[in-house]
Design a binder for these strands. Structure first.
Length: 322
DNA sequence: AGGGTACTGGTCTGGTACTC
DNA sequence: GAGTACCAGACCAGTACCCT
C-alpha cells in the first residue's frame, strides 16, 4: 500500500548552542516595554479592548518602521498580543460573531500592573444582544478620541470610580458616569455613552444626579422627590460639564429630558448648557463635528446670533491678548 | 448552480534594529 | 552573536457578489 512520505520540516530544529556561545540570561523571557505597561494599564482600567482599538492605542508609541504615526498594523498588534498572552497577562478571545478579538487582563496581568481590581471575565459580560460589549466598545472609542484630541487629559474610568464606592445595606449609590475626564485647565467632564433607551423619569434622575451630585442624592433619602428637587436647586456636582454620547434616536430622548427639566424650572439655563449631547458613532469629518455642535446649540435655543456674539467676543479677547 | 473575482481578516515569514 | 521586538507583506481561508 502506498504510504505518503512524512512531511519534513523545511528547517532543522534548533540545536543546542555550541560551547563557545553562552546562552543569554534573558533568553526565553519576554521583554517589557513602557508601551506594554501603558497599554496594559489602559486596558485594565477599561475592562478590555477590541483588537482594532488596540491598533490605535499601541500606535500612540509606534515602533521602528511603522508606516503611520497614530496606528500600527494588525499583524504588529497581534505580535504584541501574542507576547502578552504567552506571559499569561491577557486573555484573547473572539466575543462577537465574525468580530475582531477582544483582549482583557488576567488576574496575573492585573497584579503585574499593580491594579487592585477584581478580575472580570469578559466572556461573562457578553449578553445575548452583545449590548454590554457594544457599550464597552463605545466608551473605548470615546476615550481614544478624547485622548487623541487632548493628550494631556486625564481619564478616570468607570472601573476606577466603582472601586471608590462602597455600598452600605439599603443605601442607593450616586449615578456613576462611564468615565470622567479632567482637562489640563482643571475642567472636569462626566462622560456618558447612552446607547439604549431609558425611561424618561430615570433619565431625568440621572441628569440631576450628574448636575447636582451627592447633595441631591442625600435629600432624596430625606424628602420626597419633588421636595428634594426644590431643595437641591443650585447645588453643583464636581462635574463642570456632562457629555452624553448617543445615537440619533437616543439623542432626541436625552434632549427632551433636558428640555422638560428646564421648562418646569427644575434646572436653570446655565445648568442645561452644562449638558452637552454629542454624536455616537463619533463624527468622522470636520463637517460632521460642526453639524454635531450646531445640532445641540439649536436644541438649547442658542441661535446663530448668540454664536456670532460669542465668536466676536472670542476674537475681541484674541485681539486683546495680541 | 458553479466559476471567477474582490475583499477581509488571521497567520506566517523574513528583514531590520536594538539589547544583552 | 544570540535573542527579542517590531514591522510589512505574502499567503491563506472564508465570504460576498457578479456573471454565465
Amino acid at each position: 500500500m502506498y504510504q505518503p512520505e512524512e512531511k519534513q520540516p523545511l528547517t532543522q530544529p534548533k540545536q543546542p548552542h555550541p560551547k563557545t556561545h553562552r546562552r543569554r540570561r534573558d533568553a526565553g523571557k519576554g521583554r517589557f516595554t513602557k508601551r506594554d505597561c501603558f497599554a496594559l494599564i489602559w486596558i485594565g482600567h477599561q475592562y478590555g479592548i477590541r483588537l482594532d482599538h488596540l491598533q490605535l492605542l499601541l500606535g500612540r508609541f509606534p515602533g521602528r518602521g511603522a508606516t503611520y504615526t497614530n496606528w500600527i498594523s494588525g499583524s504588529a498588534t497581534r505580535d504584541v498580543v501574542t507576547r502578552w498572552e504567552k506571559e499569561g497577562l491577557v486573555r484573547v478571545e473572539r466575543l462577537e460573531v465574525d468580530g475582531p478579538f477582544w483582549i482583557w487582563l488576567t488576574p496575573k496581568g492585573l497584579r503585574r500592573m499593580g491594579l487592585s481590581y477584581t478580575y472580570r471575565d469578559l466572556r461573562k459580560l457578553k449578553d445575548v444582544k452583545g449590548e454590554d460589549l457594544t457599550h464597552l466598545y463605545a466608551i473605548n472609542a470615546i476615550r481614544l478620541d478624547i485622548e487623541a484630541d487632548e493628550p494631556e487629559a486625564h481619564w478616570i474610568s468607570e472601573r476606577a470610580l466603582r472601586q471608590g464606592q462602597i455600598r452600605l445595606k439599603g443605601q442607593t449609590l450616586l449615578h456613576r458616569p462611564d468615565g470622567v475626564v479632567v482637562f489640563p485647565d482643571g475642567k472636569t467632564v462626566a462622560i456618558e455613552a447612552e446607547l439604549s433607551m431609558k425611561k424618561p423619569f430615570e433619565l431625568e434622575e440621572v441628569l440631576l444626579e450628574l448636575l447636582w451630585g451627592e447633595a441631591y442624592l442625600r435629600r432624596k433619602t430625606e424628602y420626597d422627590r419633588q421636595t428634594a428637587r426644590e431643595f437641591s436647586r443650585g447645588n453643583r456636582s464636581p462635574y463642570d460639564q456632562i457629555w452624553y454620547f448617543a445615537p440619533k434616536t437616543i439623542r432626541r430622548h436625552v434632549r427632551r429630558a433636558r428640555e422638560r427639566l428646564f421648562a418646569d424650572l427644575t434646572i436653570s439655563q446655565q445648568e442645561a448648557e452644562r449638558i452637552y449631547i454629542a454624536w455616537y458613532p463619533l463624527p468622522h469629518s470636520d463637517e460632521e463635528s460642526t453639524q454635531e455642535e450646531r445640532e445641540d446649540n439649536e436644541a438649547l435655543g442658542l441661535d446663530d446670533e448668540d454664536e456670532e456674539e460669542e465668536r466676536l467676543d472670542a476674537e475681541g479677547e484674541g485681539d486683546r491678548e495680541r
